[in-house]
Design a protein around this nucleic acid. Structure first.
Lengths: 220, 220
DNA sequence: GTCTATAATGAGATAGAC
DNA sequence: GTCTATCTCATTATAGAC
């Protein structure tokens, strides 16, 4: 009898079903958080979307805060690798330009967010939400700041005459312009004829490249 | 008896006390909404901060949505006047430069938000929040789009060779960079030595001016 | 105009059976 | 791992006395 119980426990350490359930929950949380924000989302909404019992969300995701952090961190880790990989790969073809650095940061993100994948689309809105709220300071710090530091160093190499203040400001402006494409693209499209994703990304790169380069031309 | 009731009602049509109460409520709502967002804020928080009974918030502000709209619209009206006035005043001194147009849009806002006035500081964060969320589409449309349309026209005059798509994108990037100073200034300050408000605004204007001017140099 | 009291709902979290 | 049931609390909104 007792051995039968033990055997059962051993055999389903993390069962296949639970793995599926856990990632269904994370996906649902990603979608709901991105649509309604942290406070607007409820565990129950998430459970419904995941087609899972309410209690299971807490069981697999922990508290609501922990679940939120987990959702942000999951793709942030992928993103950190994609961005630094892009940087390393481009470095093999000689010294970097300003546009190279910006492109290695922006493109891996936007090409996923603007493309069809609904999960990345949701993630884009979610990050725009996280980034605009000082309350998520700590999440930003853990998930994104390490990569940002790497790219700031690269900017400093490319533009040695520009002060750290200028570079920091330019980088924040760049990130916020990038995120505006996640949350406010409808506004751009409403102002004129909609344009292709690719054109939009090039326009963004033009904008930020020129903006940061200006600091080099007019040191402060 | 009956005449006494009528007299009481007449004498305090909108009494001085009620006017004070109403604006205390709006100020409190502004502060709480800006700190916690729409969903994170509660009518009770607002009532407490206004030192007023819970029921009074509903009485003077209506539903939570209506109160939110009212708070956003209140300063938006002032802002629309300040911005267009700045435009008109500068037009008297000859034709506008690109930087003039951007400055007339950005400066009236940022000089209030970055300055000490806590009410405008709160409003800045609030607008950053509103702007990052498609849910407030309608509020944006009513409160800000008319002014934006005016400034887009001015941009088109200054840069006739640039497509509406490019101008629209450049304007959205500019607005989002501007709003990043409301919500994410701590991030800039964390990256390097903090800089003065004035330097920061000039850096922003340099960035956006160069960014939009680039579109003129490289038409798409 | 202001207050108390309460209705009606929905939230996050947990205990305990299976 | 999964589910039902429930605890505990906070929310918006309103009804009605003063």
């Amino acid at each position: 009898m007792a051995s039968k119980v033990l055997e059962n426990q051993r055999q389903r350490a993390p069962s296949k079903r639970s793995l599926e359930t856990k990632s269904r929950i994370l996906n649902a949380a990603e979608a709901v958080f991105s649509e309604r924000g942290f406070d607007g989302a409820s565990i129950r909404d998430i459970a419904n979307r995941a087609q899972v019992n309410v209690a299971l969300v807490q069981h697999h995701g922990g508290t609501k805060d922990a679940l939120f952090f987990h959702v942000v961190a999951r793709k942030a880790e992928q993103l950190a690798i994609l961005r630094t990989d892009a940087l390393i790969r481009r470095k093999r073809h000689g010294p970097l330009s300003l546009r190279d650095v910006l492109s290695c940061f922006i493109t891996p993100f936007l090409e996923r967010v603007l493309q069809g994948d609904p999960s990345w689309r949701a993630y884009g809105r979610l990050i725009a939400h996280v980034s605009a709220d000082a309350r998520w300071h700590e999440i930003t710090e853990k998930c994104f700041d390490p990569t940002v530091a790497v790219f700031l160093e690269e900017l400093a190499v490319v533009l040695p005459s520009v002060s750290r203040q200028q570079l920091g400001a330019g980088f924040v402006f760049t990130v916020s312009a990038m995120l505006s494409l996640c949350a406010s693209r409808w506004r751009i499209d409403a102002m004129a004829q909609p344009q292709s994703d690719d054109d939009l990304v090039q326009t963004l790169l033009d904008f930020c490249e020129a903006g940061i380069a200006r600091a080099a031309a007019r040191p402060r």
